Lab assay of single mutants.
Amino acid sequence: MDVFMKGLSKAKEGVVAAAEKTKQGVAEAAGKTKEGVLYVGSKTKEGVVHGVATVAEKTKEQVTNVGGAVVTGVTAVAQKTVEGAGSIAAATGFVKKDQLGKNEEGAPQEGILEDMPVDPDNEAYEMPSEEGYQDYEPEA
């Protein structure tokens, strides 16, 4: 019985440690998101679009440190934060509304985080759909 109880105690310690790591990862992701939003706020009209992409990228980098179902929630929060940063930029006159959601080359930025393969159960990952990809044929 002692062996059984000791095993359960060790398992509990492992769960607590994993929860603490997840909590730490979420806190880091939130900190990076805040950094990115402050970065966007300090940019001029020309830099705002690039700044919004930076927020998304920093958040995406930190999301990889967070495991399990938390990833889905962090990704949703990050996307809403990026959308909010863009709205703030438009409201303050840093950028025109028609410039939001495009990178410096004018290509749409939507789907940055949505296409990231995420499995809350950590069982399997699927690649994003290939609808947006084109076949590449090298020139002879």
Rank of each mutant, 00 (worst) to 15 (best):
V52W: 01
K12D: 00
N103C: 10
A69S: 13
L100D: 01
P108K: 12
Y133T: 13
A85L: 13
V15C: 07
A11P: 00
A90E: 02
M5Q: 00
A69K: 10
A124S: 06
A69E: 06
V70E: 03
D115P: 03
V71N: 03
P117R: 04
T92E: 06
E137C: 10
K102V: 11
E105I: 01
L113T: 09
Q109D: 12
E114P: 11
D119C: 10
V74C: 06
E28V: 07
G86S: 12
A19P: 00
A30D: 00
K21Y: 12
Y125V: 07
V26E: 00
A85Y: 03
K102R: 05
G36L: 04
Y133E: 03
G31A: 03
V95I: 15
S129H: 07
G41W: 06
K43F: 12
A17S: 12
T44E: 00
I112L: 06
A27H: 04
Q109H: 14
G41T: 01
E126W: 08
A29D: 00
G36S: 13
E13M: 10
E20A: 05
E61Y: 08
G84T: 01
M1W: 00
P108M: 10
Q24M: 06
N103R: 06
A91I: 03
S42N: 02
D115C: 07
E46F: 12
Q109G: 01
A53I: 13
A11W: 15
E46I: 14
D121Q: 00
V3K: 01
P138C: 11
V37Q: 00
V63W: 13
A27S: 14
V82S: 09
V82F: 06
K45Q: 03
E46Q: 03
K43S: 05
L100F: 04
Q62P: 05
P117E: 02
T81F: 12
E114A: 09
M1L: 00
T72N: 09
Q24K: 05
T75C: 12
E126L: 07
K58C: 08
A78W: 08
A19E: 00
V63L: 15
K6A: 14
G47T: 10
A19D: 00
A29V: 15
V40I: 15
A11Y: 08
Q109P: 07
V70M: 15
A56G: 08
Q62V: 09
G93K: 14
V77G: 08
A30C: 08
N122M: 08
G47C: 05
E57Y: 06
G101P: 13
K6D: 07
V49M: 11
Q24E: 04
E104P: 10
G7Y: 13
E105D: 09
E131N: 10
G86H: 15
E61R: 12
Q62S: 06
A53P: 02
L8R: 00
V3H: 05
K32H: 10
G68T: 06
K10I: 13
Y39N: 14
A124Q: 04
G47D: 14
E61W: 14
G132E: 15
G7L: 08
P108C: 08
K10Y: 02
A140I: 06
A85H: 11
A17I: 11
H50L: 09
S129I: 08
K12I: 02
E61V: 07
T64R: 10
M127S: 10
E110H: 03
T44N: 02
T54A: 07
L100Q: 03
E35H: 04
H50M: 13
A29P: 00
L8A: 01
L38N: 07
